[in-house]
């Protein structure tokens, strides 16, 4: 068979989501960010929300999220995304407003903004990538770094007597009256990615319908930071991360009501 017989629109079974730009991603091989970006781009397109969406980018590996998803974006200072999103949504109540944050952004420097935005029940979706490490700055300890996990600033492993305990911020956010939906997902398998997509869709629907704050935590990998191959990273994540950060819904107001 000739190559041009294969490259034929009739044979096309998959294409780049319309809203995912052609910019080459700066993410490392094996990183979860790329999959989550793709899911978000697909969903905004499928939900017909391109003209109605404003994204709030974090500081961290996803600082350049605005280069990849073709909607209007504002780049927040480190940790402040939920404060920005609060104002963006309140001043533009018809818009789909979401933040995209890492573990340092949401649960270290931005803990106050995160908790208070969620406690006010701001009608936004918070997409939170938890890979247990600071990828952008070179693999330092995050609040979510596991006990014993080696990072650039815990070279002998995280010690709780020195560094405190891993922080499960989503569990905490689920306790707040302002959140309507808090879930923990992953994207390391096709099945997991499909579930993550329906979770993010639900979060977007909640934000549009004004049901309160939704938080979708994606437990992800950081091959570079963890110093493991992408395949080994997935295995390490399943074995270690999922124990501290078990997948599933932490709160789902729809079901509870």
């Amino acid at each position: 068979m000739e190559l041009n017989q294969i490259i034929n629109p009739a044979n096309k079974v998959y294409s780049r989501p319309a809203l995912l730009s052609e910019n080459t991603m700066h993410y490392c091989p094996g990183c979860s960010h790329g999959v989550v970006h793709k899911i978000i781009a697909e969903l905004i397109d499928e939900m017909g929300q391109q003209e109605n969406t404003i994204g709030v980018a974090p500081v961290g590996c996803a600082v350049f999220a605005y280069n990849y998803i073709d909607v209007d974006w504002v780049e927040a200072a480190h940790g402040r995304a939920p404060a920005l999103a609060t104002a963006v949504k309140r001043l533009n109540p018809e818009k789909l407003v979401f933040t995209y944050q890492g573990d340092g952004d949401i649960s270290a420097i931005g803990t106050a903004e995160t908790i208070h935005a969620a406690n006010r029940g701001e009608n936004i979706a918070i997409i939170f990538i938890n890979n247990g490490i600071y990828g952008m700055t070179g693999g330092q300890m995050a609040p979510t770094t596991l006990e014993g996990q080696k990072t650039a600033t815990t070279p002998y492993g995280r010690r709780v007597d020195l560094n405190g305990y891993p922080l499960a911020i989503s569990t905490l956010l689920a306790q707040l009256d302002g959140t309507c939906y808090v879930t923990r997902q992953a994207v390391h398998t096709a099945a997991a990615a499909r579930k993550a997509k329906s979770a993010i869709k639900k979060a977007f629907q909640n934000a549009l319908a004004g049901r309160g704050t939704s938080v979708v935590e994606i437990v992800g990998t950081c091959s570079s930071g963890w110093k493991l191959s992408p395949r080994a990273s997935n295995a390490w994540m399943e074995e270690n991360m999922f124990e501290k950060y078990p997948l599933g819904d932490l709160k789902n107001a729809d079901v509870e009501k």
């Binding site: 404003i54 504002v74 402040r80 404060a83 999103a85 104002a87």
Partner: peptide, 17 residues
């Protein structure tokens, strides 16, 4: 807001729109 830090960043978000 919950702090002046949040206030000014709300201003930043609002101004961006």
């Amino acid at each position: 807001a919950e702090s002046e830090t949040a206030s000014i960043n709300m201003v930043y978000g609002g101004a961006a729109t």
